[in-house]
Simulated scan of single mutants.
Amino acid sequence: MKALVLYYSLYGHIHRMAEAVAEGVREIADAEAVLRRVPETLPPKVLELMGAVEAQKAFAHVPICTVDELVDYDAIIFGTPTRYGNMCGQMRQFLDATGQLWLKGALVGKVASVFASSATQHGGQESTILTFHVNLLHFGMVIVGLPYSFAQQMRIDEITGGSPYGASTIAGGRGERMPSENELAAARFQGRHVADIAARLARP
Rank of each mutant, 00 (worst) to 15 (best):
K110I: 09
I64C: 13
V111K: 06
L35D: 08
G123E: 00
F132D: 02
V134R: 03
S9V: 12
A185L: 05
P44G: 01
G145R: 04
F115R: 05
L6Q: 03
A31P: 04
I170F: 10
G24A: 10
I143L: 12
M154T: 14
G24K: 03
N86C: 12
L184T: 02
D68Y: 10
A202C: 08
D196I: 06
A151N: 07
C88E: 15
S168N: 10
Y84P: 01
R188V: 06
W102Q: 05
S149V: 02
G51W: 10
F78T: 09
L103H: 14
A116R: 12
R200G: 00
A195F: 00
A112E: 08
L6G: 03
L47P: 11
C88S: 14
H138F: 04
A186N: 01
R192K: 15
A55S: 11
V108E: 13
A198N: 03
R192Y: 01
M178V: 09
K45A: 15
L4I: 03
V108F: 10
A18T: 09
T160L: 12
R92Q: 15
Q153A: 11
P204T: 06
A97S: 14
E32W: 02
I129R: 04
G140W: 01
A198C: 07
G123M: 02
A112T: 08
M141K: 07
M50S: 02
I159Q: 12
V5E: 03
D196S: 07
E40F: 06
R203P: 01
I156F: 08
Q90I: 08
G51V: 06
T80K: 07
T120V: 11
H133F: 15
K110N: 06
E19T: 11
I64K: 04
Q190D: 07
A33D: 03
V25H: 05
L10I: 07
H133G: 08
E48L: 10
L42I: 05
S168M: 11
V194S: 01
D30T: 08
S149Q: 14
E69H: 00
V71N: 01
L49P: 00
L47H: 09
I156Y: 08
V34Y: 09
D196C: 06
T41P: 01
I197G: 06
D30N: 14
P164L: 08
G109M: 02
C88I: 07
E27N: 07
R16N: 11
H133A: 13
A29P: 15
A58F: 00
T128E: 01
K104N: 12
L137R: 13
E27T: 12
S9T: 12
V34R: 03
D74S: 14
R155A: 12
S9C: 05
E19H: 09
H138I: 08
P63A: 04
T120C: 02
G161P: 04
L6F: 07
L201A: 04
P147G: 09
N135A: 14
D74K: 13
F59S: 03
E40V: 07
T131K: 12
D96R: 03
P147W: 00
I197Q: 04
F189W: 10
G109I: 03
V21Y: 00
V111T: 15
I14N: 11
P164N: 07
M50D: 03
Y84W: 14
L201H: 09
